[in-house]
Amino acid sequence: MFIPITSTVSVAPQISADDVAAAAAQGFRTIVNNRPDGESFDQPAGAEIAAACAAQGLDYVAIPIDHTGFSLEQVEAMAAALANGPVLAFCRSGTRSCNLWALAAAKGGIAPAEIVEAAGQGGYNVAGLMPLLRQLAGA
């Protein structure tokens, strides 16, 4: 269920409070929620995931991404969360989480081609972000 993107970053579709224990057992230190509360009637509330993280000794960071897209503030928040890895980021399908990781990685100086390759190995196509990745990377 957890899809590795790099050795320290994985993404996932919606997780449950029960999945938090599995994440802790796999060595994750931080869980990032990229899904706004109330996006779907069947998703657990962020507070429920946050409580499960606290019970497992994991950091929980909420960086909700909605239909309006990504902001620089969200990219910077993700970059800060990545500093406390290994990180598991989730949303409805994992795509927003992977895209936000890609943007934060570029801002952190990782080469855009490496980012596209890493995401691709996880089954995600971030090539459409290439112009923005280059801009954030200063390339």
Rank of each mutant, 00 (worst) to 15 (best):
W101Q: 02
Q121N: 15
R29C: 06
A105G: 13
A89W: 07
G27D: 12
A111R: 09
P36M: 09
A50G: 07
D37G: 12
A23I: 02
A51V: 02
P64N: 10
D59N: 15
S71P: 09
S40H: 11
N34L: 08
C91V: 09
G38S: 11
G94L: 07
A25P: 00
T68F: 08
A52G: 09
I49E: 06
D19K: 00
G109F: 11
A52M: 05
F90C: 07
E114T: 13
G138Y: 05
A113H: 11
A45I: 00
A22D: 14
L129R: 02
F90N: 13
A106W: 12
A119L: 07
N99S: 15
I115V: 04
L100D: 06
A139D: 15
Q14I: 10
Q14Y: 00
R92D: 07
M130D: 15
I3K: 08
P4V: 02
P131E: 07
D59Q: 14
S40W: 00
A89Q: 11
Q74N: 03
Q43F: 13
A118L: 01
Q26K: 14
N33L: 05
D66Q: 06
L58W: 01
M1R: 13
L136V: 03
A106P: 13
V61L: 03
L72T: 08
G85P: 11
G108V: 05
T6H: 12
G38W: 02
A137V: 05
N33I: 03
Q74F: 11
E39I: 03
G94Y: 09
G46L: 06
S16Q: 13
A89N: 10
Y124A: 07
F41N: 06
N84Y: 02
Y60H: 13
I63R: 06
A106E: 10
A106R: 08
Q135G: 12
A127S: 15
A102K: 00
A137K: 03
A51H: 03
P112D: 06
H67E: 15
A17I: 01
R134G: 15
S16F: 01
P131W: 08
F70G: 01
G120F: 01
P13D: 04
M1Y: 05
